[in-house]
Write a protein that binds this DNA or RNA. Sequence first.
DNA 1: CTAACGCATCAATATTTCTTGATCACCGGA
DNA 2: TCCGGTGATCAAGAAATATTGATGCGTTAG
Lengths: 104, 104
Amino acid sequence: MPVATDLSALTTKFHALSDETRLRIIDMLRGGERCVCDLTEALDAGQSRLSFHLKVLKDAKLVTDRREGRWAYYALAPDAFAQLEEFVGELPSTKLSVLASRCC
Amino acid sequence: MPVATDLSALTTKFHALSDETRLRIIDMLRGGERCVCDLTEALDAGQSRLSFHLKVLKDAKLVTDRREGRWAYYALAPDAFAQLEEFVGELPSTKLSVLASRCC
DNA sequence: CTAACGCATCAATATTTCTTGATCACCGGA
DNA sequence: TCCGGTGATCAAGAAATATTGATGCGTTAG
């Protein structure tokens, strides 16, 4: 089992990425840290909504947040995609032609 | 924009991977093609339930199915993870230290 | 000190997704 | 041809998620 490690942490991460708004957020953060107001404006999402999605990303450990004065800055977590790469990386191409030998 | 390609296809794939049962299915398919009854047994899931999850994976184009007699065989789609790798691969590590210059 | 701002959180509602049990269609063996 | 087995699909209910608007808390400017 390649990825028996922590299935539920993995599903949490994938779930966090299964939403367009959140994907956009991630994409914006690729350029570096952003404050919430920047994101709100760029994504034209209500403040409350954005805050919710940021929380989902944070809970999945994909982003980190930092408080500075009255602003909150979010950034990609350093090793955010490590676990995902591990899972996705196990390239299946090699064994693809293997057919199920025998059924039931 | 690195991944402007097709956000909704991407979210669909991520969503398909955001469930433990489906992750287990993927993992089993790494070893090659499997028939549904094998999967049902190995995952101890009801037939209907499994069929539902297989459909989710198939709709996300992560797996393909093949009919043979009265059995159905599922396998990882050849390029299943290509798009995911593209997204996940854009390693953020380099720009991580970039702080937001100015806010709102 | 007070008012405005940035943001998190909560409550209520809408929406989506999952599970279960039926049912149906198809195929192969007797 | 009839029957049992495999698996898809549907309908109904349960559960998880998302959206909205309201409220609250800390911070900064005046």
